[in-house]
Design a protein around this nucleic acid. Structure first.
Length: 518
RNA sequence: GCCGGCGUAGCUCAGUCGGCAGAGCGGGGGAUUUGUAAUCCCCAGGUCGCGGGUUCAAGUCCCGCCGCCGGCUCCA
């Protein structure tokens, strides 16, 4: 049998490959662990060459394992205990399963069809379909009671590896149609594991606690609908959300925090301070700015104008509607129509309300003969646009159907591109900083399916954006296919008081329009 | 769009089996003067989101519409 080397603390020992981590800990006389932080030795070797970033905080990157899992490679293994941050992840995951078990005991195992049950930032959820049952908020206490009962039983949790055939057989017997779909999506060669607690068995890759009694404090928070796989052509499941922490105090703190956050909700403040309102008879996602809010808005706008002026932007104003030919040449009618308000007929012409300002700014560029010496040209407008958003996604002032954006278009030469992108990005971050948005995520959004232009140009443009982001020392994620139809973009999402992220600034690279300019 | 919840006085909400619209806070008036938002008394009269329908009678039941809110992968 092949041997692996395991380091725990300052000791190390040889084990047979595939020894469960729980047994390894026994050998090292470690008691009370609920999981393990595992770092492959190979990875450590790699990182040793890159300074000393092997601090505890970084270690979470390499993986949280439970005690049931056999260790298949040489690694450094650190025990995780109750009360630890890493342990929360395991505990919450187990709670999701306890929730599933509670549901199956309440409504009958074969009536409950489980979707996915992952952890969240502060808890967990499980997506389920229950035959003939529409859960209501009032059902939550009952479910919570059942969960507590299961916790009290302190059921040992087992991990079992199954072959693909065994797994399929098991889950089709249980009527788990969604789990069967998941099994089909598991790549060939990857292990299929199930976890069992008492009579309840569920497809899961872990990690889980050693037993149900080891969970912390939790509360089911709310129910919402959620499409299976997040796709609107799939059935709608019922998602049950819960929050969970190790101690009552932490849970209470979090619930208090949510209360505090509610008090600071911009929709509540907007009403109380008489900043804005929404009227049934005007329409969804259409905002009325009340005098006090308008004054506040004016101050913001003045500030923005000033900042743009300082950075060499020229101010322009453009109409709210334009003929269809404009939107045909811009490509909006081909690629953005589902987000546009429907057409208006007038004088044998079709007009559209603008969803974007770009075609107008380009028309301004084209309004006279230009010399390359003028470049870069930076046109800026507080442009009001209208977009058709799904009614269900509208949200206060943050997701609306009509809004005014501080929108600028920079027309420049290829040589100027990099510098301009960096300047614009820096500008956006500086503005966010003024308003205290220090926590944000940067995304590079790449080519979507429906888009124009050749691959090579897309690649060059995308790389230019990545370079700008990394040159400014920012971390970023790739939003695959999230770009605009005419080019890739840098999106900046900022965190609100509740921890939700909202996209504010975006810097887009349009290399297609210039061709249409000549 | 879809699933679920909601829409009653300025705000937060109560209105059970359908029968003459209520409370607290705020606001207005008065009293008191003692202590940091919350002392006492009085008052306020709102198309019960909108439009249909059922009924002797609807905030309460049915249908349609409008709007708001929670969510719609943080992958087994």
């Amino acid at each position: 049998m092949e041997k692996i080397k395991v380091i725990v603390g300052d000791k190390s020992e040889q084990f047979e490959r595939g020894t469960p981590i729980g047994e390894i800990f026994k050998k090292f006389d470690i008691k009370g662990a609920i999981g393990a932080l595992v770092k492959p030795l190979e990875e450590i070797k790699k990182e040793e060459h890159k300074e000393e970033l092997l601090k505890d905080s970084k270690a979470t990157d390499s993986g949280i394992f439970d005690l049931h899992t056999p260790l298949e490679f040489s690694a450094e293994v650190k025990p995780i205990y109750k009360g630890s941050k890493e342990g929360l992840e395991i505990m919450r995951h187990t709670l999701a399963h306890i929730l599933a078990q509670a549901l199956s005991e309440l409504y009958g195992r074969t009536n409950v069809h489980l979707g996915i049950g992952p952890t969240t930032e502060n808890g967990f959820f499980y997506d389920v379909e229950i035959e003939g049952v529409h859960l209501k908020e009032e059902d939550l206490p009952k479910i919570e009671e059942k969960m507590k009962e299961i916790v009290k039983r302190d059921l040992p949790i087992e991990r079992i590896e199954l072959s693909r055939e065994e797994a399929k057989k098991l889950f089709s017997e249980l009527g788990e149609k969604y789990k069967l779909q998941i099994i089909d999506r598991i790549p060939e060669g990857e292990k299929i594991t199930v976890y069992k607690q008492g009579d309840f068995i569920d497809l899961c890759k872990g990690p889980h606690l050693p037993s149900t009694g080891k969970v912390g404090e939790f509360k089911l928070s709310h129910i919402a609908g959620a499409y299976w796989l997040g796709r609107s052509d799939q059935p709608m499941l019922q998602r049950i959300y819960g929050v969970a922490f190790w101690t009552k105090k932490d849970l209470k703190n979090y619930l208090n925090f949510l209360e505090e956050v509610k008090k600071r909700d911009h929709r509540k403040l907007g009403r109380e301070l008489e900043f804005f309102t929404i009227d049934n008879n005007i329409g969804a996602g259409l905002i009325l700015w009340l005098p006090r809010g308008a004054l506040y808005r004016k101050l913001l706008e003045d500030f923005l104008r000033e900042e743009h002026y300082k950075r060499g932007y020229q101010f322009v104003y453009t109409p709210h509607v334009g003929k269809s030919v404009l939107w045909e040449t811009s490509g909006h009618l081909e690629f953005y129509k589902e987000n546009m308000f429907p057409p208006m007929e007038m004088d044998n012409e079709t007009y559209f309300v603008k969803p974007m300002n770009c075609p107008f700014h380009i028309a301004i560029y084209k309004s006279k003969v230009r010399s390359y010496r003028e470049l870069p040209l930076r046109f800026f407008e507080l442009g009001t646009v209208y977009r058709y958003e799904l009614s269900g996604v509208l949200h206060g002032l943050l997701r609306v159907r009509g809004f005014t954006q501080d929108d600028a278009h920079i027309i420049c030469t290829e040589e100027q591109v990099e510098g301009e992108i960096k300047k614009a990005l820096k500008f956006a971050l500086d503005i966010l900083k003024v308003f205290g948005f220090n926590e944000y995520k940067v995304y590079i959004s790449t080519r979507p399916e429906k888009s124009v232009g050749d691959d090579h140009r897309w690649e060059v443009a995308t790389n230019a954006l990545i370079k700008a982001v990394t040159d400014l020392g920012l971390d970023y994620d790739i939003d695959e296919g999230g770009g605009a139809f005419y080019g890739p973009k840098i999106d900046i999402k900022v965190k609100d008081a509740i921890g939700r992220f909202w996209q504010l600034s975006t810097i887009q690279f349009d290399f297609n329009s210039p061709k249409g300019l000549t």
